[in-house]
């Protein structure tokens, strides 16, 4: 099984995910963001960029991520990280975030786009449903797993635009779990992280 690493930006919400009991054991290595450029990634097979990592701190590592993918490895880009700024072949667009659909009697209109995908052996759609930050247009040949409003993807799996794999989402579960806020986000991670480990 490959090694799973996650970037740690030093925020309290990343601390709760990376260094506390519920999820900390999933990560083989936590890489402090300011140490990324001097970290040996040779035995890391999956690198997670957790939600709300400031893209300004990732742009400088654009080549590192490209090289990582060219080695056939996996980059996981979570929500609110501006992946279009530091990864190739990402199309993201801003949409106003609907925080209040559950209060106003509406719906996010999420749908599973690829029911046979192994992610859904681990994650239920209800546990991916809180809000999302913008929409993605998957590149040709990539697989959208969750669509919103028939207008775009909020989670896709791209094995085509590089020798490696890009898993890209506009969901921000680490931020909200780290805030002790929105139980669905914790349940999402209960499934998502074991799924990542299984890949």
């Amino acid at each position: 099984m490959g090694k799973l690493a996650i970037i740690d930006t030093g925020t309290y919400y990343h601390h709760r995910v990376i260094h506390e009991d519920r999820f900390g054991h999933f990560f083989d290595q936590a890489i402090y963001i300011r140490d990324l450029c001097k970290t040996d990634l040779s035995d890391i097979t999956t690198l997670i960029v957790p939600c709300r990592t400031d893209p300004a701190h990732l742009v400088a590592h654009r080549k590192l991520f490209a090289d990582f993918l060219n080695d056939g490895k996996t980059v996981v880009a979570m929500g609110s990280t501006g992946p279009d700024k530091w990864l190739d072949d990402i199309s993201w667009r801003f949409t106003p975030t609907n925080f209040w659909w559950w209060k106003e009697g509406g719906s996010l209109n999420l749908e599973i786009a690829e029911p046979e995908h192994s992610l859904f052996d681990y994650v239920k759609l209800a546990d991916a449903t809180w809000h999302h930050h913008g929409l993605l247009t998957p590149p040709a040949g990539a697989t959208s797993l969750i669509n919103a409003n028939k207008a775009g993807s909020i989670f896709y799996d791209d094995r085509v635009t590089s020798p490696g794999r890009k898993i890209v989402t506009t969901l921000d579960p680490m931020y909200h779990h780290g805030n002790h806020f929105m139980p669905a986000t914790s349940r999402f991670l209960d499934g998502f992280l074991p799924w990542l480990k299984s890949q």
Binding site: D54, P55, A56, S80, G82, K85, T97, H133, G134
Partner: peptide, 9 residues
């Protein structure tokens, strides 16, 4: 605060 965090900060 950090940038690129959506529209809620």
């Amino acid at each position: 605060p950090i940038k690129g965090a959506g529209d809620d900060l």
